[in-house]
Amino acid sequence: MSNPAPFTCRFAPSPNGRLHLGHAFSALVNVEAARRMGGTFLLRMEDIDTTRCRPEYARGILDDLAWLGIFPDGPVRWQSDHFGDYAAAIARLEAMGLVYPAFESRSQIAGAVIGLESATGRPAPRDPDGAPLNPFPRAAMSDAARAALRDQGAPFVVRLDMAASIAAVRELGGGPLSWEEAQGVPEGPRKVVEADAARWGDVVLARKDVPTSYHLSVVVDDAAQGITHVIRGMDLYHATSVHVLLQRLLGLPTPAYHHHRLILDDSGYKLSKSNSATSLNALRAAGATPQDVLLRLSPQPTPST
């Protein structure tokens, strides 16, 4: 019987702003789990958005982590260095007939959703994050017409044909689509969670100007870095269904998962850069010490999901 893979986890911030307390908590949960398990803690910079991600933010992230005493156990993986890997994954899915170029703009999609809601008097179907599902099915345009538009240079996104992908997984075999979710702490007892990727509809896997998306790059990177335990916030719990689906389609291993509690603001909302959450840099400037932050964020067991 072979030995299990060593415990390897990662923290994967996007350098489009400075870290806030929510980021610090996730990094701390990861590094503390790696220490308890005698494992490896890695760092990944999710910098696929070359417009918003900046070198100064990346330097700030590294500086904030070092200030907290958090250091990776290996080189940083920069997603912008691996666009070829993501393009190869897209090509593999395309060869399987599971992706297609979609040319509808965001304004067209928004207009179609409003029209649908007006006609039916009901809210349009939405994904687990609350975003409306794409109202333009693959069958609305022939593959030949899509190829012609693509050859003409029309802007597009690459969407996953969800129904065809789920059918392909059944044909591939390997049992039900699911993952193991660690309870309480990252190395805690696990329960099997059935994936429900269909709720996400035909998700975007790449854009014309960026040959990947979060969903695609995260599964490619986790496999490339040998991640055995994905430890991240509860806000990504439902997205795991899409990730497990892509792992099965691409023949990649499925890690164990642990979705930890979120750090909330005074109004009960998740801290985020878009909501101008106070950064660690600002706390440092106000006189906070690493000990102040670590005490405030001392990891607590996540309630069972």
Rank of each mutant, 00 (worst) to 15 (best):
L149Q: 13
N275Q: 11
M37D: 03
D209C: 02
E32K: 13
A131T: 11
A167N: 06
A91P: 09
P72A: 04
L19G: 05
P253M: 04
Y100V: 00
D266Q: 14
P186K: 05
A285S: 15
D266E: 15
A164P: 03
T50M: 11
R232N: 04
G22L: 05
S274C: 10
S274I: 10
A139N: 02
L295K: 12
R77M: 14
G184V: 04
A66K: 14
L65E: 08
H82G: 04
K208D: 13
L98Q: 02
I114T: 14
A198K: 08
A5D: 13
P75Q: 13
A282F: 08
T254N: 01
R248E: 07
G201I: 01
D49T: 11
A102W: 09
V169H: 01
G174W: 00
N3D: 15
D292G: 06
M45F: 13
Q300R: 13
L252I: 03
V244G: 12
G97M: 08
R296Q: 13
G111Y: 05
R138T: 01
V204Y: 10
T289F: 06
G188A: 02
A167L: 07
Q225W: 02
H258P: 04
R261Q: 14
R35A: 15
R59C: 03
L133V: 07
R54L: 12
R232I: 06
L160A: 07
L21S: 01
M141F: 00
R146Y: 05
M37F: 06
D151S: 14
P72Q: 06
A88F: 05
V218S: 14
T212P: 04
N281S: 15
S80K: 12
P189N: 05
F25S: 10
A277L: 06
S241V: 09
D64Y: 08
D196I: 10
A195Y: 00
M1F: 12
A224S: 12
L62W: 10
S2R: 12
S298Y: 14
F71M: 14
A95L: 07
G153T: 10
R138H: 05
A286I: 02
L295R: 15
I90V: 13
D209W: 12
P137Y: 06
Q108Y: 00
D202S: 05
E94Q: 14
P176H: 00
D222E: 13
G38I: 10
S107E: 15
L149H: 09
A110Y: 02
D47C: 02
V218R: 04
I263C: 08
H229V: 00
R126Y: 03
A285P: 03
F83R: 01
D196H: 11
L116H: 13
E194T: 15
G74V: 08
C9W: 00
Y86N: 10
T8G: 08
I227E: 03
